[in-house]
Design a protein around this nucleic acid. Structure first.
Lengths: 338, 338
DNA sequence: TCGCCACGGGCAAACGTTTGCCAAGTTTTG
DNA sequence: CAAAACTTGGCAAACGTTTGCCCGTGGCGA
């Protein structure tokens, strides 16, 4: 069943090396021979065996990628962009989901290394627990962190500039009259959770605003809803609720409305990431748009640079985000869209 | 840098075959030797080379999967479940996005075949254009279609029973007093589009309802919104709008509301799939829940069966869906949740 | 005319495993 | 106690490529 380069060689009446070179163009081969080889390959139905090639060439053309949760809508967009970028250089993506567990993450990384991936793109689950396995991984292949990162690693990273993002948000709500803002975000155990919290604190201070309260849970709708209940029950509502990502904001908005509060008329609400959800809900969400395409292309670029030279200095690329203003901070303009 | 089985053999003072057997357990090896080999492997930091193993064993332990669009929230849930299932048998998933293009799809499949995947899971982009490449693929490996399928293929398939789903929906809206229903769905060029349309027609006939109008576009929010505008401009609103998937329903609801119509009080709206979106919006969406976990496990099971015996008769598995009733068809109960 | 070089084809080794076969040692059996 | 059977370790071939090296041919300058 398996038709190999040997079959092609026999069919074309040449040696296997000639076939290999004719097909790959690694060295000059007579034009009429090239034609004959291609013709023979077509005739016997030859298909390249990437496994054998990988073993011999010591490179697989596969990049491994590990994300904390593929069903979090932020990641499919990144994955899509990475895949598109890789395709330009004829490489494939092997995607793994670490299910937000450092233990699963470790196993997935080990498996990818065993498969001899040419590089590893990862959004680490936990800023502490992921460190060790990443250190091991970088001894075997090029590793670039995306979006999130692990502490104490000398590893490249590309993501969004949380500092700028939060500054944009704070400035925006202040311009709309907010004086007291609340933060609803995730615990400090992921780098995004921690950095966004710190960034918000600095931004409110700089803007001269009062931060009324910080509620930290996880990046989910349910947590957003729970936090909103907490805010309402305290009876001391802020002017604006700044959320750590879009999903939290969705939960917050839904729960506030359920308690008879109007968004944006009673409270402004903002998200972070600009996932598709942001336009699904009503009012549409004012949020920070991550430059996803750029994150993906830069990640691959960093990976290739590291591949070319292991000794390169570590680079951390914080890309500039963009404020997207929608209904959730625009009183009166009832949910005007995307 | 690369530490191989030979290094382990030298360290342990045995032959490579003994190391291989001790590590894989392929044959009885003396217990003290097993121990010594493991110890040596640990000491030199040995890691299995999956590429070499794949070449020799003629199986890679990788399953290829091609989906039309990973950012369509229906697919990440499937991918997650498939990955989890595969992990039980120590296999990896190689995921590709065909970007809703038959041409990209063809290239992705070719690449996966070249990588010697042990099997192929695919949700074909187009019921016509995808047929040819699938036929070629099945000559090289086991292929199972998921969710969507291509015509004229003798290929296994597992998905949801659209017939039952639409029957459940129609029965439900009729029970809530609807007499005239409209369908907003996608063109007939994907199998889901076609089958859901046909199923709805039969269901309305059976239920003795009048189907006022069919609007066919694509499975997207934008199309849902456009269709809703069309419905409104015709001025002859149906009692219920049945949508081909959840995203269309989201677009329909948003646009209806924008025209001052209340859902569910003026018009009932239903979705299909029960993606996370269904609970994001207000009112939450009454929809058909696909048994995603079951689809994933059955797909892998079919694949393994086919792998074991190529001559097996073709099987088409239509799994039973479930109606999930939420606010969009429950007048008065203002958006009670999931 | 001779020698040198460029060109293009082929041989065979290597990539890191697994595994069929053989042989030596050990146990069971009649 | 000898023969048969079983156990266990090692040798070497194979998986399908790519590529370093060698070699024959023909063109060209001296």
């Amino acid at each position: 069943m398996a038709v190999t380069i040997h079959d092609v060689a026999r069919e074309a009446g040449v040696s296997v090396s000639t076939v290999s070179r004719a097909l790959s163009g690694a060295r000059r081969v007579g034009p009429e021979l090239v034609e004959r080889v291609h013709e023979a390959a077509r005739r016997v139905g030859y298909r390249h065996n990437a496994v054998a090639r990988a073993l011999r060439a010591q490179r697989t053309g596969v990049i491994g990628m590990v994300v904390p949760e593929i069903s979090n809508p932020f990641f499919p967009a990144i994955v899509e962009a990475v895949e598109r970028t890789l395709q330009e250089s004829d490489r494939e993506l092997m995607l793994c989901d670490s299910r937000r567990s450092p233990d699963v993450e470790r196993r997935r990384i080990q498996a990818l290394l065993g498969r001899q991936v040419d590089g590893l793109l990862i959004s680490p689950v936990d800023s502490q627990a992921s460190t060790k396995v990443l250190h091991e991984a970088m001894r075997h292949t090029a590793v670039v962190q995306m979006d999130r990162y692990a502490d104490q690693t000398r590893l490249d990273w590309v993501g969004v500039d949380d500092e700028s993002g939060m500054a944009l948000v704070v400035q925006h709500v202040r311009d709309h009259g907010a004086e007291r803002v609340a933060l609803v975000s995730a615990e400090r155990n992921s780098s995004s959770g921690r950095d966004r919290l710190d960034a918000l604190r600095r931004a409110t201070t700089t803007a001269g605003l009062a931060e009324s309260v910080e509620l930290l849970g996880e990046f989910s709708i349910d947590w957003g809803a729970a936090a909103a209940r907490e805010l309402v029950s305290r009876g001391d509502l802020p002017d604006a609720v700044v959320c750590g990502n879009d999903e939290i904001a969705v939960g917050v908005i839904r729960e506030l409305r359920r308690h008879g509060l109007a968004v944006p008329d009673d409270v402004l609400v903002t998200g972070f990431d600009d996932t598709p959800i942001a336009t699904y809900i009503e009012p549409a969400l004012t949020t920070i748009r991550q430059p996803r395409e750029a994150i993906a292309t830069e990640a691959v670029r960093l990976l290739d640079a590291r591949l070319a030279d292991t000794e390169l200095p570590v680079r951390k690329l914080a890309l500039q985000p963009e404020l997207v203003v929608r209904g959730s901070t625009q009183p009166g303009s009832e949910g005007s869209a995307s």
